[in-house]
Design a protein around this nucleic acid. Structure first.
Lengths: 220, 220
DNA sequence: GGTCGCTATTGACCACAAGTCAATAGCCAA
DNA sequence: TTGGCTATTGACTTGTGGTCAATAGCGACC
């Protein structure tokens, strides 16, 4: 029977499969993330992703009006994931410094577990694109705010509200340290994880001290 | 070369103007740098640059076989400039720490003088592109090698030869600090330049101490 | 079970920019 | 003045991002 033969054939051409709006969007988002994680932005073509999803290019454009939209959405998802998993999860009964340590541990956990997306997030696939830059920079801001919230009751907390330019510069610099060190650590066998964690904490304390004045000891 | 540009701009249509090979190449490189500094990579079209140079697209492709080649060449030129101007120029009679200070001053000078190209270099216009990444990362390596050479005779010098993973991670982290802080400083009115310089030096010393052990005082 | 409407889905289409190449014409030497 | 080297052209191909009117799956309702 013709029908049976047709069933055996893979993906009968001409047969449409409707998916729930959210499901389709989630599928495309995931496929996009995967594609952009393993290839350059312009090595990835919309047709590729559509083909991988088994749909037409037109449909992809129905969900994401632009290639960059798809890219940015994936980046944003990674960023949200990073922030959600790495801060605010520590036991509030722990001393502040311990909470920060825990936060950095969670950060390094994320780095290891999502190496590819993490690298992609930092390197910023399109670089100078303002929308991409906004996502990355926004993530940094959110991350710092929540991390500094963990420092409640310590001199660090005063930083969160600071408007002094040099303080913001120092904090941003420290974040640059964290990102660069994490990336390097990731590439080189991930040795001495705790030592790295402590290095990050030390640098933060010293940086803050250098900018806001009070001695390192006491109050922590 | 500006002279050549003017001549070409005024040329009668249909009239060809031959330029020396090197001159033409230099002209295109400069125009490319300028274009990529003020627009996104894919906002810049080869036709734009060719038009700006008053030549045909085909000729541009004769000099730079690919759009990315033009982009990378410009980036490389900026990077070379940065390294050349910021290290090794300090008076060798000065104490090591002073030489490093001078090096960082020169770095900040460059940042201010070449704000756009500098940002472009760090943000890496194409991001995940391996060739671009190689240029940026190579620049970092060269920079660190020469900066650490300035530290001859201090504990810092031992770092240059170090193979210990955590040391390289720390150094890379510090560079991340420098870049991020510089960029932030650039964006926020460039206040307190000397304070920033000192912050960078402090961070370097502390980072090194945290990784290699010996106390901060003595030997510097 | 039939048909009806909503909308997910299609595929042919366009626009534009990257990249190619055989033909052409400046410029310098003789 | 001429000849030849080569810088230069511009029409061409190709590939990909993006558009849109037409189509068909699927649940709802009789």
């Amino acid at each position: 029977m013709a029908k049976a033969v047709a069933r055996v054939a893979k993906r009968r051409p001409g047969r449409r499969i409707r998916l729930d709006n959210d499901a389709r969007r989630a599928q495309l988002l995931e496929l996009g993330q995967k594609a952009f994680a393993e290839r350059t932005y312009d090595e990835v073509s919309i047709d590729d992703i559509a083909r991988a999803a088994g749909i037409s290019k037109g449909l992809l454009y129905h969900y994401f009006p632009t290639k960059r939209d798809l890219y940015v959405a994936g980046l944003q998802a990674t960023a949200d994931d990073l922030v959600a998993r790495t801060v605010g999860a520590a036991d509030p009964k722990l001393p502040p410094l311990e909470r920060i340590r825990a936060g950095l541990d969670a950060y390094l956990d994320f780095v290891v577990a999502h190496a590819r997306p993490f690298s992609a997030l930092l390197r910023g696939g399109i670089g100078s694109d303002p929308e991409v830059a906004a996502v990355v920079e926004g993530t940094r801001t959110r991350y710092m705010e929540r991390l500094l919230f963990d420092a409640e009751g310590t001199p660090l907390a005063t930083i969160a509200a600071s408007e002094v330019p040099m303080v913001r510069i120092a904090v941003r610099g420290w974040l640059g340290f964290v990102e660069a060190a994490s990336l390097e650590w990731l590439l080189r066998g991930q040795a001495d994880r705790k030592q790295l964690r402590d290095l990050l904490v030390d640098t933060l304390l010293v940086t803050v001290r250098a900018v806001v004045g009070p001695p390192l000891t006491g109050g922590w």
